[in-house]
């Protein structure tokens, strides 16, 4: 097994384990958020092994950086206590969740190998900044511009809902 493949499986497993740790760490929200950071960074490494370097950098900047900071802010503002999540209320939910998750995982493990199309070879400049730029501004110029309007809508919305005085 080549070195990238070793890293791929190693960090793939780390992503799954830390994602589970995030979901199971119901009592301690800060620990859950930190597990999320581990998931994000592991995914970034997976992207690197798949030659998608720009996506890996964005993953670290946006998800592991900005978004987790926002999560921590919310955790801090809500000031959750340990007994906010009483275990008795969650037993049924947890049980149903585990059964459903196992069911979905089983179905996919069975279905994916027979149903996926063959993977194409990636072009040599895949994932480079030039290729990403060309894709963004030429092939996907419409979604790119629409996304900017989407962000504008989100900004205006945040101001409308949160500004102290709207005059």
């Amino acid at each position: 097994m080549s070195a990238p493949a070793v890293f791929f499986y190693l960090f793939g497993a780390a992503a799954v384990v830390s994602a589970l740790a995030m979901v199971l760490n119901v009592r301690n929200t800060v620990a859950a958020a930190m597990s999320l950071v581990v998931t994000m960074i592991s995914l970034a490494v997976v992207y690197v092994t798949l030659e998608a370097h720009l996506v890996a950098a964005l993953q670290i900047l946006v998800y592991a950086g900005a978004i987790v900071v926002v999560f921590l802010f919310v955790v801090m503002l809500l000031n959750l206590r340990r007994d906010t999540f009483a275990p008795s209320r969650q037993l049924l939910t947890k049980g149903a969740g585990v059964v459903l998750a196992l069911g979905v995982a089983g179905a996919f493990l069975q279905l994916v190998p027979q149903a996926l199309p063959t993977v194409q070879e990636i072009p040599p400049d895949f994932g480079s900044y030039a290729a990403v730029g060309r894709t963004l501004y030429r092939d996907f110029v419409l979604p790119f511009e629409v996304t900017s309007f989407l962000l504008l809508a989100a900004i205006v919305g945040a101001v409308v809902l949160a500004k102290r005085r709207l005059d």
């Binding site: 996907f140 419409l142 979604p143 629409v146 309007f149 989407l150 809508a153 205006v156």
Partner: peptide
């Protein structure tokens, strides 16, 4: 499907507000 999803979000986010 990408344009469809973006359209759906551009429709929905202002509506939430």
């Amino acid at each position: 499907l990408m344009a469809l999803f973006l359209g759906l979000e551009l429709m929905s986010i202002p509506l939430y507000v």
